[in-house]
């Protein structure tokens, strides 16, 4: 070991030791547990069952249902956030008078807890007292005050959770895309103008391609975050009715706490980790390179 790496190690050691005990060890334990049948009540470490927990998870309809719901959640939420975020970012980027004030308004939900977003929409989508149903009725969109049972109808429950997610995280998307837009060199626009490109052409040939790298990273960050969603779904529907809004996080939580199935929930958690790491591997590599330099 050179002197440099010794010093590096010294600085890193406290955090490293902490992470080994409270992060790497838990992950190893998770992997180990996924091969065992464990009874939460008894103290023994369970019996080895090989990959049967994995097979059981993959074969179970509820796991597949939760996986497909998670996919729908991610795809719908992230695309809607991207479009809305881009829309707001483009509007703000025109630099109208007072744009920084409007930006502050739009960014204000940025740090709100997902739980609070869930509570807000739980209240607004309530079928008895909710203002959403009242507005829909007032504008003659629906025929009665409680025409849509947002949270207790299996056709709208997942959609309701997605709405809460879109509302909460569009500001993040807007922020990142706006920063990206402001990073596009003005000379590109000037030369496009000289070449006689109109606004639509400029948007598709200059703005979008220049924004693409930022967009890809923003989509990846949001995809990983949306896939991990728990709070919003738990508060709004707890995965119900009839598992129609069950996502992977809520299903694993239930498998652990309600059914006490440590082995099976661990197996699902390992599958979930692999899925997300594969999904984000491109992002990981580019971030790693950026920070390492």
């Amino acid at each position: 070991m050179t002197r440099e790496s010794k010093i590096s190690f010294l600085f890193f050691a406290p955090a490293g030791i902490f992470m080994i005990i409270f992060l790497f060890f838990p992950v190893l334990l998770l992997i180990k547990d996924s091969f065992f049948q464990i009874d939460m009540m008894s103290q023994d470490s369970g019996t080895f069952v090989g990959i049967s927990n994995y097979i059981e998870s993959i074969k179970s309809d509820r796991f597949l249902g939760a996986t497909s719901n998670t996919l729908i959640y991610v795809v719908v939420a992230v695309s809607a956030e991207l479009l809305l975020g881009l829309f707001f970012a483009l509007l703000l980027n025109t630099g109208f008078k007072g744009h920084s004030f409007v930006r502050t308004i739009l960014l204000s939900p940025l740090m709100i807890a997902p739980l609070v977003s869930g509570l807000i929409w739980k209240f607004m989508l309530n079928s008895q007292f909710g203002i959403v149903n009242k507005l829909l009725y007032d504008f003659n969109i629906t025929s009665s005050r409680n025409a849509i049972q947002w949270l207790s109808d299996d056709r709208t429950a997942l959609l309701s959770t997605i709405i809460a997610d879109i509302w909460l995280t569009t500001p993040f998307m807007m922020l990142v895309l706006l920063a990206g837009l402001q990073g596009i060199p003005i000379t590109l626009y000037e030369s496009a103008k000289i070449d006689g490109a109109n606004k639509i052409k400029t948007f598709f040939y200059i703005t979008l391609p220049s924004l693409l790298p930022v967009m890809v990273v923003a989509i990846l960050i949001r995809t990983v975050d949306a896939a991990r969603t728990f709070d919003i779904v738990w508060v709004l529907t707890q995965g119900g009715p009839a598992n129609s809004s069950e996502v992977l996080s809520t299903y694993m939580y239930k498998t652990l706490t309600r059914y006490g199935e440590v082995g099976e929930s661990s197996a699902m958690a390992v599958l979930f980790i692999i899925l997300l790491l594969l999904l984000s591997s491109y992002f990981l590599v580019s971030m790693f390179k950026a920070n390492k330099k």
Binding site: S8, V27, V224, A227, S249, I273, L276, L284
Partner: peptide, 27 residues
Amino acid sequence: FSSKLGNVFLLITLCIRMIPMISIAIP
């Protein structure tokens, strides 16, 4: 003082950011 060990840890660190909370919550 970037060392090889440091880079390994950095990569693991980044991976951990991608791990779903529920997966950490169970163990």
